[in-house]
Design a protein around this nucleic acid. Structure first.
Length: 428
RNA sequence: GGAGGGGUCGCAUAGUGGCUGAGUGCACCCGCCUGCUAAGCGGGUAAGGGGGGUGACCUCCUUCGAGGGUUCGAAUCCCUCCCCCUCCGCCA
């Protein structure tokens, strides 16, 4: 959520920045409404607070009179009126605040100045590239062809058990999935200084709203019908909410968490996309990195976080590149985002395998995460960041496709071999 | 799922309609005292929002699990929900 004070004081700047994101004119116009409502809010507030101050004084007077054994009937009947008025104004105030919040919750974050302006993914800026395209010397196959042939990916049984976009992983395929999870967690905890957490993968509405998945993106989420519980689409949701309503000790920042969780997405509206293979599943595994930082450190921390995620692909020897998302491609809550794209030929080339974002204070304001610079200082909002470190399934697909051999076997990257019981190849 | 108990200022507690935004103890901070430490003494110690001086200040409102209700007035009475504890049942 944007800061109403910031919007009020920088209305035109906010509007033009949002325009570069492709926010529709109607939503931008709603900002005027918010500013109007805020004005109204403050004027009602002044009135109702004055009434309350009077009432409180009169109440004290009544209590004094009663104590002295005197009658206070006149005062009491007079207070009845102003009390009704207070009730009415409080109600109005609540309505105004709710309307403001309704609008603001639908307004995305303002992009950072360093974000390239653009409308399409084509306008994203490539920052760097690692490795090079494998020189196969034969016609490479897709990961699903290889996976089925090796009997490590069973799509038919995935469908039988759950439906489209589910897969059954078997044997060394299942083990490879697990190996990747452990490899990534170990790397981030021991080399990069993140604290490992294992959060609930079902969360309540309040938590889901905190990070911005609700109310706007309910159709992308799985909801439990009889309970106030949703399946998380990413570990970002529970992990960022760990510190909801907390006031953190500034000396402890930045806080860095890493979490492995399964993720669940309905993928509504992507019916035609990535139908084959394991690229787009309703359930997938992901190792997620989350940071809470001081405002002035968040952009350095974004660079570090992106580097941490990239390290995974480097150690696995996977060809990939890093791009800066342009304003039009930016996610709802992000102020700046780097995507790390792995080379997956069956997906037409580079495919997002990690997305690292700085949300600045946008999420922190929603979930009220603050810190104190020192003991006496006033609380300030932290900045939150997160990024995949990295998506397990897509990495597995990249490994299969980049390490495939002409005979249909797949080599295991050296860094992963200790996690695979020492084997260096999956073959029939 | 059944029965009972409980959620108050960092922690522990007091408080059943009126100077209670809230007492006491602990913890913490600042002074004083003591050769040092401990003890002792004095003072202080929440957040959010509004208005004003726009300098670290002043002032007002709100907040005692959450939301509603009764009342001139609610931590205190009533209703709903959430959470925690004990016992029983069931289970990983």
């Amino acid at each position: 959520m944007l800061d109403i004070k910031f919007v009020r004081e920088n209305l035109e700047m906010v509007k033009s920045k949002l325009k570069t994101r492709g926010v529709d004119a109607a939503t931008i116009k709603e900002l005027d409404t918010v500013v109007e409502l805020d004005k109204k809010r403050r004027s009602i507030l002044v009135e109702v607070e004055n009434l309350k101050a009077d009432r409180n004084k009169a109440s004290d007077e009544i209590s004094r009179l009663k104590k002295e054994g005197k009658k206070a009937d006149d005062m009491i009947s007079g207070l009845k009126q102003s009390s009704d008025k207070i009730k009415m104004l409080d109600e109005q105030l609540k309505d105004v605040v709710v309307s403001m919040k309704d609008i603001l919750l639908d307004v995305p974050n303002v992009p950072d100045d360093s974000v390239p302006v653009g409308a399409e993914p084509e306008d994203n800026l490539e920052a760097r590239r690692f490795g090079k395209e494998p020189d196969y010397g034969f016609e490479p196959k897709s990961h699903w062809e290889i996976g089925e042939a090796l009997d490590i990916l069973d799509f038919e049984r995935g469908v039988k058990l759950a439906g489209a976009r589910f897969v059954l992983m078997k044997g060394l395929g299942a083990k490879l999935e697990r190996a990747l999870i452990n490899f990534m967690l170990d790397l981030h905890t021991t080399e990069h200084g993140y604290m490992e957490v294992f959060p609930p993968v079902m969360v309540n509405t309040e938590t889901m709203t905190g990070t911005g998945q609700l109310p706007k993106f309910a159709e992308d989420l799985y909801k439990c019908k009889d309970d106030d519980l949703w399946l998380i689409p990413t570990a970002e949701v529970p992990v960022t909410n760990i510190h909801r309503d907390d006031i953190l000790d500034g000396d402890l920042l930045p806080l860095k968490y890493v979490a492995y969780t399964p993720c669940f997405r309905r993928e509504a509206g992507s019916y035609g996309k990535d139908i084959r293979g394991i690229i787009r599943q309703h359930q997938f595994n992901k190792v997620e990195l989350v940071k809470f930082t001081k405002p002035e450190e968040s952009y350095n921390e974004l660079e570090a976080l992106t580097t941490n995620a990239e390290k995974v692909l480097q150690l696995l020897g996977l060809y990939h590149r890093v791009v800066v998302l342009c304003t039009g491609d930016l996610g709802f809550s992000g102020a700046k985002t780097y995507d790390i794209e792995g080379w997956i030929p069956s997906s037409g080339g580079f495919k997002e395998i990690s997305s690292c974002s700085n949300f600045e204070s946008y999420q922190a304001r929603r979930i009220n995460v603050r810190f104190r610079r020192d003991k006496k200082a006033k609380p300030e909002l932290v900045h939150t960041l997160n990024g995949s470190g990295v998506a397990i399934g897509r990495t597995l697909a990249a490994i299969i496709e980049q390490y495939q051999q002409e005979d249909g076997s797949v080599l295991i990257p050296e860094a992963l071999q200790p996690y695979m019981g020492g084997i260096d190849r999956i073959s029939r």
